[in-house]
Structure formats: structure tokens, C-alpha cells
Nucleic acid binder design. Structure first.
Lengths: 225, 225
DNA sequence: GTCTATAACCGGATAGAC
DNA sequence: GTCTATCCGGTTATAGAC
């Protein structure tokens, strides 16, 4: 099911050309308006060739995904190296997600819907997306673990996965956001990251201990599916 | 943009036949495998006729959605009339959602993805879906308001919308659930409905009051978009 | 003016020759 | 690994029937 790995130099070149054409066209015209034929034409390849490298149009989206992830990781590296405060790290990281994705805002809607399809190879919860998913979750593990926040180990264990889900929620909100400069999304990010950090702090309260145990064991059960 | 309203008896018959054929075929073969041509054929109509009544295949899904809502509302009516305990009402209502939708489990995945598309007329957050959305939210308002739970008014205000979102989350989980009898989903429902009711009870704790205010005002801001 | 039907169009995907 | 030809299904155009 994986995308054909390029074996020869010639293949590498073609593959790269097709991918680049696709990424460009997605941004220029949006996902739906970009035809496989147009991608092939701009890449100087034939339709059949495109399908040789990418089994479906959706698989091009997966590369698109990886592309934004690399941009995002690069964008937050300095912050993660310097800052120790959890709220600041988290806010910066999530803000960077929407800032990085901003050029693709117009495309994001249709991409999201293909990705949300459980039958799609791109579904974030599925097997094909696993390597990339693990990378992103790992990134959130770093956001938390290299902060100076002291977090109970049971929470720490679930936190990266939870933050990954939270990021997807923010992205879905961002897709709908029509406010100038996407300001509403940024406000929601600031407010929610702050709330999250605060709630982590409250989780040690005796009254909440029971619910906390139950929530965590529920999440564990769900995650281990 | 609305579906053509049937004006004459002849039209009504055709429309109903097409819709019924579509619902049957969706269940038999799934959404993707059901072609508009097959729907027309089974309904004894022509392809052109189908498009006269339903502007797109997606619009047939909207009717499908309405269909399950009616089934669901009917299924829980006795419970809502008899039971006063909030946890029981909520658990029963959400359980009934997945039980009602069970015959469509195989179809649900692809339907969900078309529906999640912000550009789709069927998007639950969009204008076309509004009447149905309001009905469902209203149903959750009844679940809460006719229970014997005493709920602070600020929470009460946001609760129906929140429970509607929660229901969608459960449905997405259910779509992935491959366990026999969909037991895992039922377990998650039991656990989460109980947690929700418990958290509502905890919301009055002085330590939580600050966060509660912030969460509610955030939700209000988001909802009023 | 409401319905029905047929014939296209368009774009994702596939087959198979080279 | 590259191409052309073709399939298939959602959608549209449009001609006619009631």
C-alpha cells in the first residue's frame, strides 16, 4: 500500500516533479479543482506516469501533509530549544500550526474531508498515516517533557496523544474561520492552551482525583484499540 | 439550494420511489458502491429524473440523515417520558443513537466524510443542515431540562449544543468500532455519560468556578460565530 | 410549467502496449 | 517507467412529453 519507492535516478526526478506540480496546483486552485491531468501536464509527465508514482490523488495529499509537518517542526525548533514554560511552549506550537498551514487554508477543507474518511488510506487513525502520526505525537511529547512543568506520570503518558487530538480540533475550527488574519482562531488557541495548562494543575486536587483516574483509564482503553 | 418540493401527486410518487431506492441501496451496497444510475434503475426512473428531485447524491444523504433522526426520536420517546434521572436519560439517548444507526454502520464511514467537508451542503455546521441540527439540539435540551437534575443556568445554556457535539464524537468512534455487537462503543458511552453528569455536579466547586466561567464564555464565543 | 428521458461531459482510475 | 486508450460514475445540457 505504500507509495512506490523511487529506485532509480530517473524515477526520483519524475516523482519529485509530479509532487511539486501537485503541491503548487493544490495551492493555486484548491484540491478539487486540481485534476490529475493538470498535475501530469505541469510536471511534464503523462497521466499514467503520475499513477505509477502515486496510487491515487489522495496519496499526493499525504505528501502534502508531510510537507507541512516538516515546515511546522522547523518553525518551532527555536522556541522549543529556548523556552521552558509549558503554556508558552504549547501556545507557540499550536499557533505555529495554523500559521504554517495558512497558505493552504483554501485547500484545507476538502483535504480534511478526504482525510476524515475512515476508509481513506490517509485517515490519521489508520495504518498508512502511522509514521507521520507518531512523529507529530512525538513532537508534542517533547513540548511537554522538556518544559519545567511537573506533571503526574499518568497524565504525562496520555498528554501527547491528547494534544495531537486537540491540534486536530483547532485545525477544524481554523478551516471554518473567516475572520481577518484568522484572529479568532488565534484567540481560541491562546484561551484553550491556557485552560489546558491550568486544568493539568488542578488535576491534583483531591476532589478531582476520582474523575481523573476514570478519564485516564478511559483514554487508555480507547487509545489501545 | 433546497431540494425541489413536490408539487403534484405524480412528482411525489417519483420522489419517494427514488429516495426509497437510494436508502435501500446505500444499506445494501454502501454509499460509494451505489451509483446514481442504479438508484434510478431500481426506482424505475431515469437518471435525469433523479437529478430533477435531488440536486446531487449528497442531497440523498441528507434525507438519509433525517430518516435516522426520526427513528432515533421515536426510539427514545418512551424513555424521555418516563425517566427523570439525568445520567439515565443521557445514557439511553446516546445508546439509542448508535443502536438506531447500527444498520447503516457500513455506510457511515463514507457518509461521515462527505458530511465533514466544510464545503458540502450537508456539513452539520452549515446553513443547509440547520433545521435538522436545531431539531437534534432541541432534543438534547429536552433530555436535560426535563430531568430532575439541578443545573446552573450558565451551564444549562451551553449543554444541549455540547451534547450534540459529544454525540458526533461518539458516532465517529462508533464508525471505527469493530468489536462484536459494537460493545466497546456502548462501554465508552456508559463511562462518558456518567463522567459528564459527574462533572456537571463538580462545576459548583469553588476551585473550579474560575475555569468554568472561562470555558463557558469561550464556548459562547465559538457558538456565536 | 412540471416531469422524464437520452446523450453528452468531465475527471479519477485502470489496462496494457511499448 | 512511460505512454495512450479506455472505463466508470457523478453531473449537466437539453430535447421533448404530459
Amino acid at each position: 500500500m505504500a507509495v512506490a519507492a523511487p529506485k532509480t535516478r530517473r524515477g526520483e526526478t519524475s516523482r519529485a516533479a509530479i509532487l511539486e506540480a501537485a503541491l503548487d496546483l493544490f495551492q493555486e486552485r484548491g484540491y478539487d479543482a486540481t485534476t490529475m491531468r493538470a498535475i501530469a501536464e505541469r510536471a511534464g509527465a503523462s497521466l499514467g506516469s503520475s499513477y505509477h508514482y502515486f496510487p491515487s490523488k489522495e496519496h499526493l495529499v499525504l505528501e502534502f501533509y508531510r510537507h507541512t509537518h516538516v515546515l511546522h517542526a522547523a518553525a518551532i525548533a527555536p522556541l522549543l530549544a529556548r523556552e521552558k514554560d509549558l503554556a508558552t511552549r504549547l501556545r507557540g506550537t499550536i499557533r505555529a500550526v495554523v500559521v504554517t498551514c495558512e497558505p493552504f487554508h483554501a485547500v484545507a477543507g476538502s483535504i480534511f474531508s478526504t482525510v476524515a474518511n475512515p476508509a481513506s488510506p490517509l485517515n490519521p487513525f489508520g495504518a498508512a498515516a502511522r509514521p507521520l502520526r507518531d512523529e507529530v505525537i512525538q513532537l508534542y511529547a517533547e513540548v511537554v517533557s522538556k518544559s519545567d512543568a511537573r506533571i503526574p506520570s499518568d497524565i504525562m503518558e496520555m498528554l501527547p496523544l491528547t494534544l495531537w487530538l486537540y491540534q486536530m480540533g483547532i485545525l477544524y475550527f481554523w478551516i471554518f474561520d473567516r475572520s481577518p488574519g484568522r484572529l479568532r482562531t488565534l484567540e481560541v488557541i491562546d484561551e484553550t492552551t491556557d485552560l489546558i495548562v491550568r486544568l493539568i494543575g488542578l488535576a491534583n486536587l483531591p476532589v478531582l482525583r476520582g474523575s481523573r483516574k476514570r478519564v485516564l483509564s478511559l483514554m487508555n482503553a480507547i487509545a489501545s484499540t
